[in-house]
């Protein structure tokens, strides 16, 4: 784990490149207090610097999406790759997640004698909550980690530097197609999660918890409408974009040799999950506001 210390100065130095003189002049007094201040400063500067570098790379990526030599072949290749590694885990994860939620939900509904509404609950839970969240977990757990490992290995073998020497912008050639691939595949996968989830919910509710099949189907469109579905797809697209950006950022900022790649992948998973969970709350609240406005 000691390699985090190696990777951070690189980021911090990129951030402080604009003001090297002030940093130097402040470092002059070599007293103990001065050293203490310096230490606390680098501690604080580390996460802030990393955050700044992430924003810089995200902006770079978004700006270079419409730029001309679009790496179409790389995009198709990456989209196929992300879809291939995510397909089976998505199916496997969507099923228990949905069934667990609908089992908990149906217990309440059956207790208050509203078992016929379990279709409404299942559709709401699947489309609004589980669909995007499962997609996130799979895209960041399977797609973003693989992207990070791939780019990280290229970084420590100095292939990215070689690209720059050849006059090829790594952001445009490597990052943009990967980020777009994550975004597109996440949107498509979330549809798959919804279908599989609803099928699982139907089978479980009807065959295990004895809900009437006709009532289940009839109840499905009660709460969920077009707006909710659109918000859910938008969620999945934004999640995919974020996961792709985090994976690429951690990959191209790997430092500290072979062990650094493993740590970077670990950080990718943690940061992606944290970012996506916080985005989830914000987008859900915005979605409710949108619905209120449209009524």
């Amino acid at each position: 784990m000691s390699n985090d210390e190696d990777s951070a100065p690189g980021l911090a130095s990129e951030q402080s490149r604009t003001t090297p003189m002030t940093a130097l002049s402040e470092a002059e007094p070599k007293t103990r207090a001065g050293v203490g201040i310096q230490l606390s400063k680098t501690r604080l500067a580390k996460p802030v610097g990393a955050l700044g570098a992430f924003y810089a790379m995200a902006l770079d990526t978004l700006v270079s999406i419409p730029r001309k030599p679009f790496a179409l072949q790389e995009f198709l290749h990456q989209a196929w790759f992300v879809a291939r590694v995510s397909f089976l885990p998505t199916l496997m994860l969507a099923f228990p997640f949905d069934v667990l939620l609908v089992f908990t939900f149906n217990l309440v509904l059956i207790e208050i004698g509203a078992g016929d509404f379990s279709g409404a609950g299942a559709a709401w839970a699947t489309i609004q909550e589980v669909g995007p969240v499962v997609t996130v977990l799979v895209i960041s757990g399977a797609g973003a980690t693989a992207i990070c490992a791939d780019l990280g290995a290229r970084k420590i073998r100095e292939e990215l530097d070689a690209l720059e020497v050849l006059g090829i912008n790594p952001i445009q050639a490597l990052v943009v197609p990967r980020v777009l691939a994550c975004c597109v595949v996440a949107t498509l996968l979330s549809a798959l999660v919804m279908v599989v989830g609803l099928a699982g919910c139907f089978a479980f509710s009807v065959y295990v918890q004895n809900v009437t099949p006709g009532a289940f189907i009839g109840g499905m469109p009660l709460i969920v409408d077009g707006t909710k579905l659109a918000v859910s797809f938008a969620k999945a697209a934004i999640f995919g974009l974020t996961a792709g950006l985090i994976g690429c950022f951690k990959g191209i900022s790997v430092g500290g040799g072979p062990a650094g790649v493993g740590n970077a992948v670990n950080e990718t998973v943690v940061l992606a999950f944290v970012a996506l969970f916080s985005l989830n709350v914000v987008i859900t609240a915005v979605g409710f506001k949108l619905e209120l406005a449209s009524i």
């Binding site: 885990p89 977990l137 799979v138 980690t145 490992a149 290995a153 072979p258 998973v269």
Partner: peptide, 25 residues
């Protein structure tokens, strides 16, 4: 090598997410 460690992390996360959700269910 280094890329193998990264892939192992991804594979482990996938496997453990699926297994634990089935365990919870």
């Amino acid at each position: 090598g280094p890329a193998g460690v990264g892939e192992a992390v991804g594979r482990a996360v996938r496997a453990s997410l699926i297994t634990t959700l089935f365990v919870v269910l």
